[in-house]
Amino acid sequence: MDYKDYYKILGVQKDADADTIKKAFRKAARKYHPDVNTDAGADARFKDVSEAYEVLKDPERRAAYDDLGREPKFDKGRYQPPPGWNDGFAFSEGGPQGQEPFSDFFETLFRRSAEHNAGMRPQQGADSHGRIEVSIEDAYRGADRVLTLRAPVVGPDGQVTVQERNISVHVPKGIIAGQHIRLPGQGHAGEAGAGDLFLEVTFAPHPVFHPDGQDLYLDLPIAPWEAALGGHVVMPTPDGKVDLRIPKNARTGQKMRLKGKGLPGPPAGDIYATLKIINPKVETEEARAFFEQMARELAFDPRAHL
C-alpha cells in the first residue's frame, strides 16, 4: 500500500492546531464535495481530505500517525507500518460507518479489528452505497455489467485487508440517471447477514443524445433544401434509425418530438430533435452558380426585422 501524507493532503503544516486543520478540511470539503463539484477527480480528492481529517481531527489517532514518522524512502506501494506502531495509543478504531472504504493505508492502520468490538449481539451488516455508470444504449435495452467493489475485510488475526470482489449487475431496461438499483445481501457483511448494496445510476456522456429524465435531446443537422421543402430524413435513435418528417419551411432551433422513442418505461420518454440548418460549403462552380441564382431570384432579407 501507499503511505498517505495527511498533512500534505489538507495543505497544513505538521504542527497545525486543531482549528487550522478543521478550517482546511471544511474549505476543501466544500470545494471537492462530489455533489457540488462534477469534475472527474473531485470524488477522489474529497475522499482523500475526508480520510485525512478522520485521522488528524482525533488527537490520539493523530499522535499515532505522527509516531509513524515521515514517508519512508521505500518504493511506491510497498509501505508497511513498523511492528507495534500503535502500542500505547488508545484511539477509537473504525471510520465512518456505511461508507465506501478509505485507502488501504487507512483501512489497515485505523480500522483494525473495529468490527470485533462493535456490539455484543449479532448485527445485520450495514447497507453500502455506490455508483454505476451506464450508457444510454444499456439503459435502452438492459445489459449485464461486472462491477468491482472494494471492501475492508477483517481476517481471523484481526488484521484488515482491503479485498476486491466482482459482482455482476443486471442493468434493468428503462433505468434512468438518479434511480437506484438494490442488490440484496451485497452490502457490508454482518454476523446476522449482510446488508444491501444500493447503486446510484449515472449516464455516461453520449456523443449524440443528452438525457433529461426519460427524454433524450439531440441536434439534428438538415440541409437548407430539406428545411425549405420539408420531407423525410433519416435520424438515429438508441434503437436504430428512424424516419422523421420535416415540415415545410422548418427553422433552425425548431424542436421535433418523437413520442415514445425516448428511454423505455411506462410511459416511455420522448426524443426531441432540435433542427439545425447547415449550409453546404461552396467549393465548385455549380454550387456557386446555384447560390448566385438564389441571391438574384429570391427576395429574401433575413435582416428585415432588425
Partner: peptide
C-alpha cells in the same frame, strides 16, 4: 462472494425505508 444477478429498481420508499436508506 458468489456473484448475483438479482437486482431490483428502487422506485418507492416508505418513510422508514428512506430513513434507513439515508441513515
Amino acid at each position: 462472494k458468489k456473484s448475483t444477478k438479482s437486482v431490483e429498481v428502487v422506485d418507492a420508499l416508505s418513510l422508514k425505508d428512506l430513513c434507513q436508506f439515508c441513515q
